[in-house]
Design a protein around this nucleic acid. Structure first.
Length: 202
DNA sequence: ATTCGGATTCTCT
DNA sequence: GAGAATCCGAATA
């Protein structure tokens, strides 16, 4: 499997968010590779986007990675308990990012790995990785992996795979403070995939 | 099936 | 000091 190159990430977050669906997120740990398919993403569109941590060009210790050149991680702690994994996109100085909201274990090994890191009652496999906090727990992703290059085979990287044809677009989740931006359809997921966290409400 | 509250700590003002 | 790009299990209906 070949890593997605940096050029892939030097574009708008919405574009990258759509194209990341179906790609393979790989966690290397104890000399083994665990592979997961990306099935749900959200785009955060930089200084104009009221839902973004970088709204108004806000530059702090936390948001700093978003201002770097695309192709690295942006990982933060949320609600004091959970981590969220983002992929930085666009060139240096343009703070776009894509939140990885859900992944699907690609094989039995990945499934067992996820299970061993998630101590929950539910026996449904979907509950292992169908949310941004859940997948970070399942793949043992924390701030030690923040601001790291994901274009090279490493502890955490992304490999190319065939593009997804049937993509659903929808509003982003849980951003009530974002005013008019909470209605932007900047969440994307693979149609009919059981690991998607929230389905379209109608 | 849907709603609800508690957990927990980093980050910024 | 307040609030956060969430999750889980329990309670309700």
């Amino acid at each position: 499997m070949n890593p997605l190159t940096q050029a892939f990430y030097l574009r708008e977050a919405v574009t990258v968010a759509k194209e990341l669906l179906g790609k393979i997120l790989i966690r290397q740990i104890n000399g083994r590779d665990y592979c997961f398919k990306i099935v749900e993403t959200e785009a955060y569109m930089g200084a104009m986007d009221k839902a973004s941590h970088a709204y108004g060009g806000k530059f702090t210790n936390r948001t700093k990675p978003m201002f770097e050149r695309g192709g690295i991680t942006y990982i933060y702690l949320i609600y004091g308990m959970y981590y969220c994994l983002n992929i930085v996109t666009q060139d240096k100085g343009i703070p776009h990012a894509v939140l990885i909201r859900a992944v699907e274990p690609l094989d039995e090994g990945a499934m067992k790995f996820a299970k061993s890191n998630r101590l929950i009652k539910s026996k449904k496999n979907e509950d292992l990785t169908n949310g941004p906090g859940k997948l970070c727990q399942a793949l043992v992703i924390d701030k030690t992996l923040n601001e790291k290059d994901i274009t090279k085979e490493n502890l955490l990287w992304i490999a190319d795979a065939p593009s997804i044809m049937h993509i659903i677009k929808d509003k982003r989740i849980n951003i009530p403070y974002a005013m008019e931006y909470q209605d932007m359809e900047w969440r994307f997921y693979i149609a009919d995939n059981p690991f998607v966290s929230v389905l379209k409400n109608n």
